[in-house]
């Protein structure tokens, strides 16, 4: 599975009339998940989220690629 770096957000059964809408939906969910958390709690949430998503992806080649993309530019 190659790492997908193109816009890829969507929700089943939902019709979008503006290309930016599904990505903005996700971003709002993401920032919303951090509401009222302290900085340490937010850091923990992020760590847990990464672990959950990494397990869902599963494929180590894809994850290695993703780690490289993320690390570049930090």
């Amino acid at each position: 599975m190659a790492l997908n770096l193109n816009p890829n957000f969507a929700e089943a059964g939902k019709r979008y009339f503006n290309a930016y809408a599904p990505g903005d939906d996700f971003y709002e969910m993401l920032i919303g998940a951090h509401r009222d958390l302290s900085d340490e709690q937010s850091e923990l949430l992020n760590a847990r989220l990464i672990l959950v998503l990494a397990n869902h992806i599963g494929d180590l080649g894809t994850l290695r690629e993703a780690l490289d993309v993320a690390r570049e530019g930090v």
Partner: peptide
């Protein structure tokens, strides 16, 4: 918030090279 700013700056950093990042720039 701090975490919101971190995500925002991460999106802007990724946007230069990756299409999915550009789509998230708002």
């Amino acid at each position: 918030s701090k975490v919101s700013r971190t995500f925002r700056n991460a999106v802007l950093g990724l946007a230069k090279d990756h299409a999915f990042g550009r789509a998230l720039v708002n």
